[in-house]
């Protein structure tokens, strides 16, 4: 198992835990380019900047659009790493008072990050 640190083109640092090791997967080498994938439904959103919580990957973003569904809502966010979509509950959108143009943090647990060489 390995924990891999990835620096994005915009300079943000992301972390991923993978089953592979540099021996089992030769692409795990310092300096190698990888694509980083994560599912929209695994993105957590926080309105607080500093949170004591075990979500390792955190990126600041601005909500550009909210599509409110009955149960779930789809947030489009502008971040340094590009456009990110977060699917969260409509309940949370209401409780947190999330609206367009708001500054938030998006967070993804390190085991949810897929690396694609």
């Amino acid at each position: 198992m390995s924990i891999v640190f990835v620096t994005t083109d915009s300079g943000e640092e992301l972390m991923s835990v993978v089953i592979d090791t540099p021996e089992s997967a030769p692409y795990l080498k310092s300096g190698n380019k990888v694509n980083v994938l994560f599912k929209e439904t695994e993105v957590a959103v926080s309105s607080q900047k500093e949170l004591n919580i075990s979500l390792e990957n955190r990126i600041a973003g601005i909500i550009t659009h909210i599509e409110v569904g009955v149960l779930l809502s789809r947030l489009m966010l502008e971040t340094k790493i590009g456009e990110v979509i977060a699917i969260i509950s409509t309940m949370s959108v209401g409780q947190m008072g999330l609206v367009e143009k708001m500054n938030v943090m998006i967070m993804v647990k390190l085991n949810e990050i897929i690396l694609a060489p």
Partner: peptide, 14 residues
């Protein structure tokens, strides 16, 4: 090679 051909080895997803 068959596994490379369809991109099966191209993500860390197991």
């Amino acid at each position: 090679a068959a596994t490379d051909f369809f991109g099966l080895n191209r993500t860390s997803a197991k």
